[in-house]
Write a protein that binds this DNA or RNA. Structure first.
Length: 529
RNA sequence: GGCCCCUUAGUCUAGUGGUCAGGACGCUUGGUUCUCAGCCAAGAAUCAGGGGUUCGACUCCCCUAGGGGCUACCA
């Protein structure tokens, strides 16, 4: 094998979004599969921006797409911002190429100028539809004589460039995922390559670019299957080597229609904003249309690169299931090292403004990292700017995360799960308060418990538990009779992590304060009723 | 209207003529327990429908139905 051939066989794939909206999950998955295929085969991953629709393309969208891809960890080797051998990578900057290639096709008689107006075209289409005929270009300008063309040109009439489609025969191509296709040329049309404003159409620009960028595999959504025969014609007409095609199944919403806004969040931005882990998003997207062996489901990006294969991409559409993605998110979160969890949780606490400077917890004596059973003390890294102010809060966050354990699955649940550790105006469950706090017994018990805690020298978990259970014994009640109202008094909810850890982490002063408040509330409530 | 794609439990999938149709999420039940989560154990649930081909079809062919795509000077 010569060096040239070797070069031609190199895997080069591309993700080619048009900057007309946010990066949605379907696009992200297409990008992911391209990325994985490139990395798996030591290939090159190209990012190309298809902005030939001047009216709909925006700068914000362009930036959003790049941001989304970076968040997912899908770094490209060639692209608009990083450059590369075959740039520019933005179609609006490749006009010269499109025109020179069109001129070449024109000289070879493979395309022709069409002077038909939009009105004429529309009228013809309406007529065809009325007669239940397939709408096709009528071919008015297909065989204009050179003098007719010169005459129209001289009059300055606008024109488009159309592809001269053979009226007979058929086109064939193979799809890596779906096998062989054959389309009758008669069903295709003399589609437009260059619009009257001089810009290329999608079908034309894609082929010129894929050809010139030496794309070896076109991996894209299956909504492009029916565009492929036109593109194959163009590849042949232009004399480019035909890439291999791989069409991915569509991603659907829960009602099995194309995924759209009304199905919930469809942009990868919104998942990032909701604090989903990018690794989880990548993992879930990978599974939407691809499987490794039908068994293994948890992968890091790195593991996906090892495992990915186009051969195992499914051909049926997949429904996006948030529930499964959240499970995958939880699984990935579990595997994070403590320091990473702290950083993530801290970020959410800060963003949700749950770190009010006024909220002082009495941590001077009791809470110590050594209290985490079976764990090495967690040492926070040198605090970054902004973190300094709360540096002494870091160990406590570490302990809260530790205590929360598996209950913390989604970062977006942090406010709900941790709010009562940081604010006195935490959410209270109305029913829980009524059921557990508004009784004479609860009121006196909580008051008694507060009194017992008051006497404690060391507010560690063992002392706290011993104190509570001891009181229960003396009152001749189940420990639960003390635990349940305490939980509601301290957290506002009927569910929380281990109550003794909650008490310790809340600190002695705060615990007693809330127990007394609840006791008073109960006494008042009873007197009032 | 024409051309094309898709169809295994609620969902993602394994399966390539002979399997008790496997796994996962979710769901149900039981166990552990201060609640919840977790964990452990058990369980319900699937080959869209109809014709063929074959000794034998989830697997091959045809039809129907449903969903989707293209048929633009959108991509």
């Amino acid at each position: 094998m010569s060096l040239i051939e070797k070069h031609d066989d190199a895997v080069r794939v591309r993700f080619a979004p048009s900057p007309t909206g946010h990066l949605h999950v379907g696009g992200a998955r297409t990008a992911l599969y391209n990325f994985l295929y490139a990395r798996r085969n030591q290939g090159v991953f190209v990012l190309r921006i298809e902005d030939t629709d001047a009216a709909r393309s925006t700068r914000e969208s362009y930036e959003g797409i790049l941001r989304g891809l970076r968040w997912l960890g899908l770094e490209w080797d060639e692209g608009p911002d990083v450059g590369g051998e075959y740039g520019p990578y933005v179609q609006s900057a490749r006009g010269v190429l499109y025109h020179s290639e069109a001129d070449r096709l024109m000289r070879e008689g493979k395309v022709y100028r069409c002077f038909c107006t939009t009105e004429e075209l529309d009228a013809a289409r309406v007529e065809q539809e009325a007669k239940k005929l397939p709408p096709k270009y009528t071919g008015t300008c297909r065989d204009l004589t050179p003098s007719e063309i010169d005459e129209k040109l001289a009059r300055g009439l606008p024109f488009v460039v159309r592809f001269r489609m053979p009226s007979e025969g058929d086109v064939r191509f193979r799809d890596v995922i779906r096998g062989d296709f054959s389309f009758a040329n008669a069903d295709l049309d003399d589609f437009v390559c260059i619009k009257s404003d001089g810009r290329p159409t999608y079908n034309y620009a894609v082929v010129v670019d894929d050809g010139h960028m030496k794309i070896s595999h076109v991996i894209r959504g299956d909504d492009h299957i029916s565009n492929t025969p036109r593109q194959v014609h163009l590849f042949n007409a232009l004399g480019y080597r035909l890439p291999k095609f791989a069409h991915l199944p569509m991603i659907l919403g829960h009602d099995k229609t194309r995924l759209s806004k009304r199905h919930g969040a469809t942009s990868v931005d919104s998942y990032r904003e909701q604090h989903y882990l990018s690794e989880a998003m990548v993992n879930y997207l990978a599974l939407l249309g691809w499987s490794y062996d039908g068994k293994r489901e948890l992968f890091t990006l790195k593991a996906l690169i090892e495992a990915f294969s186009l051969k195992r991409v499914s051909s049926n559409p997949a429904v996006f299931d948030l529930g499964k993605m959240e499970w995958i998110n939880a699984e990935h979160f579990k595997t994070l090292p403590p320091a990473a969890k702290i950083e993530l949780v801290y970020g959410v606490l800060e963003e949700e403004k749950l770190l009010p400077p006024s909220f002082e917890v009495d941590l001077s004596r009791p809470v110590d990292l050594k209290l985490v059973p079976g764990k090495e003390p967690v040492r926070a890294e040198a605090p970054a700017e902004g973190i300094r102010a709360y540096a002494r809060e870091i160990p406590r966050i570490a302990l809260i995360i530790e205590t929360l354990g598996n209950r913390l699955k989604l970062l977006k649940d942090v406010p709900d799960l941790m709010g009562y550790f940081y604010r006195d105006d935490y959410a209270r469950d109305e029913a829980a308060v009524n059921n557990h706090l508004m009784t004479k017994e609860a009121s006196s018990r909580l008051s008694a418990l507060a009194g017992e805690f008051e006497k404690l020298q060391y507010f560690d978990r063992a002392s706290v538990e011993e104190t509570l259970r001891g009181l229960a014994e003396r009152l001749m009640i189940e420990a639960g009779e003390l635990i349940h109202p305490s939980r509601v008094a301290l957290t506002g909810k009927t569910v929380s992590p281990d109550i003794f850890w909650v008490i310790v982490l809340l600190g002695k002063a705060k615990t007693i304060e809330r127990l007394r408040l609840a006791a008073a509330l109960g006494a008042r409530g009873i007197a009032a009723s």
